[in-house]
């Protein structure tokens, strides 16, 4: 039940995020679905199965961006339209906040939190890199 609530919230927030970036109106629902999926997957892996947040972020990014690349191909739209919104729920906003709050209060856990936030960002980056295998457009260029 909780996971359905989370999915709906992530769906709405991604949909609104795409609208905030002026995405084409027809692509909004699909972007929302992908965002909901990536967030739910992240929660399932990190909270329910108890793996690390970094692994969860990596797998969620990988699955969501592969699906985004496929849908971009299918609807003949630039992949950015789907890739950017569907990764936004995974951006470690909470991590940034708790890290900074720990630094401000001089807590000893500050560096551990910083490392975790940084690793999540790195995991997202690596997920996008691996997913580019499935993309036509982002291939290394030769001149």
């Amino acid at each position: 039940m909780l996971i359905i609530k989370q999915f709906i919230l992530a769906f709405i927030s991604t949909l609104m995020f795409s609208a905030f970036f002026s995405a084409p109106k027809k692509s909004l629902p699909l972007a929302g679905l992908l965002g909901g999926l990536s967030w739910t997957l992240y929660l399932l892996i990190s909270d329910y199965f108890g793996y690390s947040k970094v692994l969860a972020a990596f797998i969620a990014t990988l699955v969501a961006s592969i699906l985004a690349e496929i849908s971009a191909k299918k609807f003949k739209k630039p992949a950015t339209i789907f890739v950017i919104p569907c990764l936004l729920p995974l951006v470690p906003g909470a991590g940034v906040y708790y890290t900074m709050s720990a630094f401000v209060n001089g807590e000893a856990t500050a560096f551990a939190k910083f490392m975790e936030t940084f690793s999540i960002a790195g995991a997202i980056a690596f997920g996008i890199m691996v997913s580019s295998v499935f993309s036509n457009s982002i291939k290394r260029k030769t001149y």
Binding site: I84, A121, I138, R140
Partner: peptide, 24 residues
């Protein structure tokens, strides 16, 4: 505060930076 920060965090810049790096 976390919710309020989310629309302002540069997640799109990060994504674009990585996609540019992949193509060299």
């Amino acid at each position: 505060i976390i919710g309020g920060m989310m629309p302002l965090l540069p997640g799109y810049a990060l994504t674009n930076a990585i996609r540019d790096a992949i193509t060299g």
